[in-house]
Design a protein around this nucleic acid. Structure first.
Lengths: 136, 136
DNA sequence: AGTGCTGGTCTCTTTTTGAGACTAACATAT
DNA sequence: ATATGTTAGTCTCAAAAAGAGACCAGCACT
């Protein structure tokens, strides 16, 4: 039983006892998953998986994202290698965002999760209703 | 082209123009995905997928989660129907958390994403390095 | 000259998260 | 008898993140 815990610890833990260099980057799950586990990433990935979009198009597509968070989320997705940013020298300049190969690869499993969400939305809502009824 | 956008809009958008009742719950992707797209959910799901754990065990397993966030994340997972909470009348009382059927079902696709993360951690780190080198 | 379009940045406020002290009730150790 | 540890939390306050929306430059069109 303790062996299993230790096994899991190696995957989950951020701090390795007695190790000076243990940090978040040592845990793939946390390092990668946290990059896409935020309010807007999966939504933008889903949009860009369909086709390339320009900044303004994305903003209209997801109207309740603030420009600030759209800029920042796209920047983060680009930094992690999921999204490619291309500037076209039009007047005024336009910027197109598209998925990279890595982004398309990651969207595979992400899409599975999104499909699960669509399929089981009702069950989750039902669970919430029961829970909220049981304890206000 | 516009047709595709409209298709996507129906899945992504939070506000439906002219509709009084349009809100977050109308969008399965956002409603369900946002429940698990936070810092600790996937980590706790991964732990509980292995076996049931008690509150204190989870806290030791994920040592850098605050008690406050552990309580809250477990509460949210329970509310969405992924986690079952059972109190044992020991002295002092102990509480065991385990996955429900719905939780195990959801962990299927989530696990795929986690495996992708483990497999492609290196590629993501490399992308970050290149990005950070190009623009400080 | 005025207006609009582009893709942002800047500032301010609100919300979320983190750190950690504190609780109650009982068991065990001294 | 008194001190200490255990349980699963809650509470408060500080820090970080997110949201709202004004503002910007450069050019086209009117």
């Amino acid at each position: 039983m303790d062996g299993k815990i230790v096994n899991l610890r190696s995957k989950l833990e951020i701090y390795k006892a007695g190790s000076g260099g243990g940090n978040l980057a040592d845990c793939p799950v946390r390092d990668v998953i946290q990059g896409i586990s935020n309010k807007w990433s999966s939504l933008l990935m889903e949009a860009l998986a369909e086709k390339a979009y320009r900044f303004g198009e994305l903003r209209r597509l997801v109207p309740d994202i603030s420009q600030r968070m759209l800029t920042q989320t796209l920047h983060d997705l680009q930094r992690d290698g999921y999204v490619h940013r291309q500037v076209f020298p039009t007047k005024p300049p336009s910027v197109e965002y598209s998925l990279t190969d890595l982004g398309r690869s990651m969207f595979g499993p992400l899409h599975q999760l999104i499909q699960w969400a669509e399929l089981n939305h009702g069950a989750v809502r039902e669970a919430r209703k029961i829970f909220d009824a049981a304890e206000g």
